[in-house]
Design a protein around this nucleic acid. Structure first.
Lengths: 216, 216
DNA sequence: TAGATTGTTAATCGATTAACAATC
DNA sequence: TAGATTGTTAATCGATTAACAATC
């Protein structure tokens, strides 16, 4: 495996957007080459920034022509490690867990959902295709057997820490947490917190600013 | 209504977290006063940054004591406009839309869901409490009647732009978009894009870095 | 060649951190 | 008073933008 460059925070936020827009918009329309200004417009950023980002992952363009779409996509795949899918589990298969599981193209983003877990698997919503929904009791066994290192937490807040502790004990080291609280984890463990309320707050604030702007 | 200070991006991202942690963790435990270092630890940021943020919204602390929890909470409520709930709609009541609608405490974040809309309302999942799920045909009428200015888009990607156009025509100006594409909107309209794939990508990348770190 | 676009260095901007004075 | 914590200015850091040379 080639070594992974340690990318700046801003770059990591934008690479998935380049990947997404090129695949869904440009390649879908048969466009083979894209200019930095075109990508800049799609993402609403400066075109110099796009060139900086692409330079950071080693993508070369051709003056007067642009960057080849498939080179960008392929390089982002490599840098992000999409070609080496990591086994992952979803803990809590309610509406939110089900919605995330149903998201098409997990594999295209380097993750492979091997199982969902729920306290009441019989009433839980189904996961896509053949992915099973198992009772919580089977979590340690399955996580260990499959070598799972990534977990998506979509249980209610009050159950989130217990679920996390269970996963930590089995060696899971990367978490995507949708429960509205701060998970306690040991050093070296990655947690990406997806606090829904942050989005809500900003909606409210943006709308308030807009109203004010209308008047002033 | 008092004027809204235009806050820096970082501050806007952190205020909801302060609000959330104080309400859910500190006030729940009966703690009336909080120090900047305590908040800093919860959010994993520098304590000076916390004091800067609180100063930015005009919260005063007391040396040797700290900041009063209820003053912070109340001030954030005012600054963010939570006391003035904005009517909002959810368009697309599938698993994701249903999960978001079920999120407790919308009102506490300044939004009031007046209705959900779905192309097939009879098969759509129900919204919380008495909030109705209506057919798309009734969208213009209800949005206008209720003075809705905020919309949450949780329809499939292929239906998102059409839904947005419908909402724009009725005066909606603030969007929270969960569909995996870039909505086209006129200038002055706010869109917060919640690209699920960005989170996925980062999970994959973080896990890859971690693996590498283990070896190196 | 002329023109368009990449590539890269330098400048700017803004956010974060450090230092330390003020205060209870 | 001594000590802890706030409050605020200055320094640093990093990300973005500007400028412009290189290249096809």
């Amino acid at each position: 495996m080639s070594s992974v460059p340690r990318l700046r925070r801003g770059v990591i936020e934008r690479l998935p957007r380049y990947y997404h827009y090129i695949r869904n918009r440009l390649e879908a329309e048969g466009q083979e080459v894209v200019s930095s200004s075109q990508l800049a417009e799609l993402l609403e950023v400066d075109d110099t920034l796009v060139r900086h980002d692409l330079a950071a992952i080693g993508v070369k363009g051709q003056p007067k022509v642009g960057f080849r779409c498939n080179v960008i996509v392929q390089t982002i795949r490599e840098v992000m490690g999409f070609g080496d899918p990591k086994p992952a589990v979803i803990v809590g298969v309610g509406r939110l867990g089900g919605a995330i599981a149903a998201y098409r193209g997990f594999e295209e983003y380097g993750l492979r959902i091997v199982a969902g877990f729920d306290a009441k698997p019989e009433t839980a919503r189904t996961l896509v295709s053949q992915t099973p929904v198992e009772p919580m009791e089977r979590l340690p066994e399955i996580v260990r057997a499959e070598g799972v290192t990534v977990a998506i937490i979509t249980v209610p807040a009050e159950a989130a820490q217990a679920a996390t502790d269970l996963l930590l004990a089995q060696g899971v080291r990367t978490f995507w947490n949708f429960a509205p609280l701060h998970l306690k984890v040991p050093p070296g463990v990655h947690v990406r917190n997806e606090l829904l309320s942050v989005g809500l707050t900003q909606l409210s604030y943006l709308e308030r600013l807009r109203k004010q702007g209308d008047r002033g």
